Amino acid sequence: MYSWRTAKRIIEIDAPIVMGILNLTPDSFSDGGSYGSVEAALYRVEEMISEGASIIDIGGESTRPGSKRITVEEEIARVVPVVRALAKRFDIPLSVDTSKAAVAQVAFDAGAEIINDISGLRWDPGLAELAARTGSGLVLMHSLGEFETLHSQPPVEDVVVEVMNGLRCSVKQALERGVSPDQLAMDIGIGFGKSPEQNLELIAKIDRLVNNFDGYPLLIGASRKSFIGKLLSENDPKKRVVGSIAVATIAAMNGAMILRVHDVKQTIDALKVVNAVKTFL
């Protein structure tokens, strides 16, 4: 059982839960441009909630290979109107997927309660100070390099050791800035600076990672990613659903507690089977 504290509530996690992805970018690798209006975003979130999502993760800046950084002002313009509208209509934890403290602050003022930082505080330590001040949930993801080089890093020799060491540094930085341990969740950063083989190795060894971060819920975000496409010989991300569900199932069986996904209903259905099987373990 994990009790993950956010700015508005405590999320009790005694079985794997789903974080539904809401991309507000025109250029995301899988669904860029699909939810560019507040109305479209509201409709999609209502759909994900009805399918069983426990958290909605809202992103305004694409991190696909080849993407370019956008300004704080542009990211705020994409994210904040949607966060405000969602917070007024739905009582569900809203996560803002950003590595900029200035964006997170305005999103929190609009109703967000979790920060999802792909840099693990490497780019903007002010995110930890914001989390400490607001009591927000904070997802720390392992990644290497700067924004423009996230997907072009040479593979490290031992990816499991690298991820554990990197996350330990992120946790240390967060705690030193006043974040409480119960505000933290870990993300091993599937697809960020790892080779396809290393992504598979991390998924295979999730139980080892869970044991090394006892007390922190582990988040896995592998949905529709390119290593799945490579395995399936499938270039269209929307046709990688079955492979994504396979990864989510393996992750959940081995201790991952938060699954960040595009395909909520299919993942929820798979989790029902996983949870039924785990009662006999």
Rank of each mutant, 00 (worst) to 15 (best):
A85V: 10
E75P: 02
S95D: 06
K239R: 14
Q266S: 14
L121Y: 00
D124M: 00
A53R: 01
L202Q: 04
G178Q: 12
K265W: 13
A276H: 10
I10Q: 02
A102V: 12
L232A: 14
V156C: 07
V210G: 10
V179H: 03
S226A: 14
A101Y: 03
V160F: 05
A53Q: 05
V72W: 03
S99F: 00
G59N: 09
Y43D: 15
D117K: 00
L144V: 10
I115G: 00
V277I: 15
A7R: 13
V96Y: 06
D97R: 04
S50L: 13
R64V: 13
V38N: 09
R168T: 15
Y2Q: 08
P26V: 14
E61D: 04
Q198F: 03
I118W: 00
D31W: 02
R224K: 06
G189R: 02
D207H: 11
V161M: 07
T71R: 05
G243V: 12
R89N: 09
M1F: 04
I115D: 00
P26M: 09
V163K: 00
S136G: 14
S244G: 13
D269P: 04
H142A: 09
K8V: 10
V247P: 14
G111P: 14
E74K: 12
A248K: 07
D97T: 13
S37Q: 12
E73N: 13
T134Y: 02
R89Y: 11
S67H: 05
S136A: 15
L281K: 08
Y43G: 03
D97V: 13
F29I: 08
D158S: 14
A15H: 14
I220V: 15
I55N: 08
R133W: 12
V277A: 11
S28G: 15
D109Y: 03
S226I: 07
F90Q: 06
D14H: 11
H262P: 09
T279C: 08
R168Q: 15
V210F: 06
G36I: 09
G193A: 15
A185G: 04
L231F: 09
D27I: 08
R9W: 07
I56N: 03
